[in-house]
Design a protein around this nucleic acid. Structure first.
Lengths: 110, 110
DNA sequence: GTATTTTATCGCAATATTACGATATGAATT
DNA sequence: AATTCATATCGTAATATTGCGATAAAATAC
């Protein structure tokens, strides 16, 4: 055991969970924060911005890339990373739909 | 190693990550889906709705409760669970703020 | 060519998460 | 008090995640 039983849930539930997992780490939030802050594609210096070793940052970048949240192109001997506008909007939509799905009842027993 | 280096990130980054982690599992999404669907507090039958054993469901409920997303009161020999309206709205805000923080640039190099 | 710089990958150790059987708890029922 | 029902907790096994040192890969600089 220990492995998530993905088969038993709907595709939407799994997608939402995977999406949440992609941003479920402060380092990955910090990376996205930074990409938003500098307001342009970033070549290099992401490692210097984080309190983590280079291989660890590289791994987090990979996960963000797998999730589709960021994209990166090789540019000389550096990589140009930036937020993937389309996936970003898509994620925003999915989360909004989920959270807007709930409307508080007038009568609640708890 | 293996433990997340929470100390090195801002409180906001950690909060956002923790929040995301709370919904980063299809079973927990499914529980929230169900609570939204039945549109009232639920006493019992959450276990029957999920493809997981009772202790596992109980554990997921506990995590959702820890995150503040749901609240539960003892009601006879059952528990009345429902979505915590306030935390729900708060989470929605935090996520919205995060996702709205990004506005695509006209000139993007990737 | 050899250095230098930057990012990726490998391999491993530490920790966290997921899942569930067994058992405990706690309230209602008989 | 014993039974029943619903949920919680304990203990443990399987798997996943996090982190980093060592090393590789790939481009630039000299």
């Amino acid at each position: 055991m220990g492995a998530t039983k993905t088969d038993h849930f709907t595709e939407r539930q799994n997608q939402l969970a995977t999406l949440a997992k992609a941003i479920a780490h402060p380092a990955r939030i910090a990376i996205l924060d930074y990409l938003i802050k500098v307001d342009s594609c970033i070549c290099g210096d992401i490692v210097n911005e984080l309190p983590l070793a280079q291989p660890t940052v590289s791994q987090h970048l990979k996960e963000l890339k797998n999730a589709g949240l960021i994209k990166g192109d090789i540019e000389g001997n550096a990589i140009c990373y930036c937020i993937d506008e389309n996936t970003w909007k898509q994620f925003q939509d999915i989360l909004n739909t989920f959270f807007n799905g709930y409307t508080p009842k007038t009568e609640s027993c708890c």
